[in-house]
Every structure is written in C-alpha cells, then in structure tokens.
Design a protein around this nucleic acid. Sequence first.
RNA 1: GCCGACGUAGCUCAGCUGGUAGAGCACUUCACUCGUAAUGAAGGGGUCCGCGGUUCGAGUCCGCGCGUCGGCUCCA
Length: 646
Amino acid sequence: MRCVKVTLPDGTDLELPDGASGADAAAAIGAGLARAALAVRQNGEVRDLARPLVPGEPLEIITPKTDGALEIIRHDAAHVLAAAVMELYPGVKISIGPPIENGFYYDFEFPPGVTVSDADFARIEQKMREHINADERFVREDVMVDEALQRFRAEGQDYKVELIEDLVRDADRDHPVEAVSLYTNGPFTDLCRGPHAPSTKRIKAVKLQSVAGAYWRGDSERQQLTRIYGTAFFSKDDLAQHLERLEQARARDHRKLGRELELFMFSELSPGSPFWQPAGMAIWNELSKLWREENRRRGYREVKTPILYDVDLFKQSGHWDTYRENMYFTDVEDRPMGLKPMNCPAHIQLFKDDRRSYRDLPIRYSEQGLVHRHEPSGTLHGLLRVRHITQDDAHIFCSEEQIRDEVVGCLEFGFFLYDLFGFEPRLELSTRPAKRIGSDEIWDRAEAALRDALDARALSYEINAGDGAFYGPKIDLHMTDSIGRSWQLGTVQLDYSMPERFDLHYTGADDADHRPVMIHRALLGSFERFIGILVEHYAGEFPLWLAPVQAIVLPIADRHAEAAGGVLEALRDAGLRAELDDRTESVGRKIRDAELRKVPYMLVVGDREAESGAVAVREHRIGDSGSEAASDVVARLAEKSVRRER
RNA sequence: GCCGACGUAGCUCAGCUGGUAGAGCACUUCACUCGUAAUGAAGGGGUCCGCGGUUCGAGUCCGCGCGUCGGCUCCA
C-alpha cells in the first residue's frame, strides 16, 4: 500500500495510508490531540483537518493552544453570524466576513428599511448559539467558477458574484482561476478560501460588539454596508478576560483622564478645538520647553508666522486646488482670506525675504505653528484628531546634496524625543499618492532620498504606497493609543514641488541660481495629539517633570499652616509646580484626593515636622517614606525635575 | 461626510408602558483640628442638547439640526 510521510515538529516522521487527512494524522498521534485538533499547518499554509495531507511536508496540528488558532474560530464565528443573520433577516445580502485582530466582522446589506442596532444583538447571538450548539460541520466543496456564479446569482447574492468575477479577472495569467471553494455550515454556504475548524462547536464563547457602516470594497463612492463586529474565544473565561482588558484600556483613555485630571475640555461651541486648563497647559509648557531647547541645540531657529492669509497664497501653494474643502475661509473687507492649514507657505515667505547663498544652507526654521483643518465631523477624536492643530513644525531649506544628512538628523532628533518618553514608534515610508503635484522624475528622486536615509541608519520600516503628501513622499512615526488604534505623530516630508511653485532659489558657489529642496518635519506631530498619546501612555501618572502639580503640601491641622506655607514657597522658589491643601479636612482625605489627582509627591507637615523644618514624604503609588529636611527634599525634587528623569 | 447608538445637576448615572425630575461624588455653610486613600450635619444647584410637531399634558413619542461615542471613508 502506498503511504504519505510527514514530519512532525519534534522531528519524528509519521507514516499514514495514502490520502490520509489531517484528522487521521491527529488521531494517529493520540485521541486527545484528535479531539483538540482544529486544522493543520503544512508549509506555512493552514488547511482544514478534513483535507488530504501534502506528502513530504512538515506537519503541525493546530489546537486551541497554537498561535493563530483563535483566528480560525473567529472566522468560523463570522460564518455562524452570517448564517444567523440570513435566517433572521430574509433578503439580506452578504459580502465578506474575515477574522481581525481581536475578533471578526461580517458586512451585510440589509433590505431597504431594515436597520440593525446593538439592541438586536441578543437575538442574533441567541440564533448563533443555536448553530454552535448544533455542532454543525464546516463542509468544503470546490466548484467550477460558472457553477458558483450561477448559484450566487440565483440567490441574488450580488456581492459574491462580484467577488468571484474579480477573482477570475485579477488572476495571474499563468494560473487562471477555474474553481472556487465554498464552505457550508448548517443552512449557510459562503464563498470562502478557508480554512475552518471541523465544526461550529469549537467556538466556546462568542459576543457581538458593535455595528458600524462600512463601504463596500472600502470605497466611499460605493454602497455602504452594515458591519457587525464580534469576538470569539475558546472559553468563557478568555472572553471575560478580554472584556476586562478592554475595560481597563478605557480607564486610560485620554478623554476620560483629561476631564478627571482637568487637563483640557471640549465645547460644542468649537468642535475639535481643545480648551487647555491650567493642568494641561503645564504639560504643554514643559513639552514646549523641551522642544525649544532641543531645536536650538540642533541648529533650528524659531519663528512665528500669521495664521490668516490672502487666498492667493494658497492658490500658489496648491492648497486651493487640493485642499480647499478642508480649509476655513472668510472675507476681510471684501478680500478673500483663509486660515493656513500648513505652515510651509509661511516659512517660504521668510526664506524669500532675502537673497540666499549656498553658504546659508541649510536654513532651519522651527515654529509651534497653529494651523486649522476642517476635519470631517465623523473623524474628530479627543486630542488625537482635532481641527485646531499646533504642529511642532520645522522647514529645512537645503541643497539636494544635504538631503540625506538632514533627513537622518530629523529622524535622530525624533528618536531622541521618543526615547525620553519610552515610546517605540513604528516607521512608515509613504510614497506618491494619486492626487499629487510634481513630475515622476522628481518623485523618483525624492522617494529614493528618503529610502537612503532610512537605510543609512538601518532602520526597519513599512512602505505605505500611495500615502504620501501631495507635494512629496514622507517618513512617518506612528504610535498606538490605549485601545490599539494607530496614530501618526512625527513626519519627515521631502518636497521638491513647493520650491518650484514659489520659485525659490539660492546662489551657488558657481554664482548661478539653484533650486533648494524643502524638508517639512514635525516630530511630536502636534502638541495636541502628542499630549493625548502621552496621557494614555502614562495613564495620567506623569513623571515628575511633566506632572501638572509636582508636589502638594499637606498640613495636618490649622496650626501647621505657617510651616506648610514655608515649604510651598521653597518649592515654588525652586521652580516646582506646587500646591498647598489647607482645607480643614483630615490628612487621610487630603492624601486620598492627592493620590486621585496622581500628584507625584505629597509632603505632610505636622507637629514633628513643623518643629524641625522637615516634611514627611509620600510618593504617589509608593507611599510614606518618612521625614526629611524640607530643604533637602526641595533640592532633590528640583534636580530630578530638571533632569527629566523618567 | 457616511452607518448605528447616545445627549438628564460640575462629574458618573437612575427615571417602567407620556402625568411638570432623583442618587452618589463635587460645591456652599456650620461643627470637628485630625499622622498617610473618604469626619459629620445642613443647604444650594437642572432651558432634561436646540428647534419644530403629535397630545389635555412630552425628559419620555415623531421630524429636523447640533454635539458626542463606535466604526467606515478621509487625514496635505
């Protein structure tokens, strides 16, 4: 008899009869494994348990404990969801339903007039559980394209028809698509590449989470579908733990902490524009100070430019053509004017104010530039997406030869700043977008220059094709917020176009005119977004140097007011942000309030301390560390703050 | 901008099927003068997001608008 031979992860070989499946292999190894098995992995590909093994390839049996196993049952759960929805909503059209990072979704087009909201989740989940408890098998069949098309057409499943047609059309010429795979679970059959677990009962816990609109094929010109998000796990405990983690993540949401710690607020009177309260402004100012010091150290010179301009400026810069929709305009004595959405045209005016020599280059202007962008209403998000944006901007005017060093300098500056906060940003290189200005040769050169700079530092990065600015490619630094969403912070953008449009030039050593190149860079991105990320990163427990209130003096009784006042004064004289809690409350109460405000240091003054010029030091989260001379404590904190210790 | 949900005191939230609003915290006052996460008592505080409509009567039902939240698209 012929055999298939496969190698197991521990190096042993397994021989099975010809045509044996993954399930057979699992059973041959052990009954427990056979029960736990979900799928197999061979040569990097995850396949159904029921499919014949590929002879000669290493074999790994996937069980709930295997990395990536959740993805399988989440995909299963998406199919179960679709099955339930099709039963409950006759006439619904299905599109796609993949597993995603923490769960799965399925996109549907409901019949006209039918809406689904989270109020419907209970009965959909109920129906899903029926299918799960019925332990329905996932059955794969491979059918010819024509047959599949006929089948989905007959059912009026237009999206499936389009998917198959596109599969055929987009196929590699050498490997035309002749057949597609269908998976059936219970009453439901879906076009699907697989793989799936053997049956629905492998899903031990499932929960629908939210409903959202999503455009078909991600195209806002096309039909908007209803997306139902859910998640699934191998146990109810795992699900409960996951929900608990989400809850904890919400506790560090900067919008919540911003209100609780009185850092900033928002008002309906100016959507997307933060109002900074004193505590938030303290953080802003520290960041600002850091930014100034480091810019100066690196040869930047700070400038300040207007926010309101004649629209002619934006016609020349190209913003009028490409960005008008997102700008704010007004008429001033019948003269059309607009708020700048970017600082570059302003800095260009500074550059043009004089004849420039190659000896002047690079010219580095920095500015905390206030720009306004009319971000669509649905996209605003606390400090992370605002309309009133203070960029930590800079523009470098340099010669083409200087590009690499300047870009490397920007990146190193960025990493210096991020290191200070313990951030590990993700790098992306974004290349030419469809809507752009400038010739292809220019884009070729610009993209190559950025790649060189990244390679020069051996930095790893992702390519984000087509996501560059309309005037040039860029390198972006991305960070993740408390619930895993990615936000762009820093950016370094190369621009050959703007100097062209504004006819910038400098005199070279050859006494001829040359065109400078512009580098746009923001490292924090914007103060707003960066502080939002900072709040979530520290969960509001800022290091001493950033803390809005660095130390609070807590007198035990009224008679300690004078001594406490002296400590407050000493702290303030040392340059620290300090407060005195002289309410007629118990120390316990004062400590509790200070802890909740996440004040790093609480300095308690009672009889013992008042007498000897001491304070009892209590550090946030750490606790009482005993009495010390007030002057020593003040000096120590001042030193620690100046050093920006983490 | 699009889809769905939500909008009640400064904050967090209750308010059943329509009958002119409640709690806790915060705030004010008084008493207490306190040793490391809440002292006690009393009191003040609401255009129930806005505008229309239905109704004898709307926080509650309907429409429109604004804002917020979760996504989608977008993010120079």
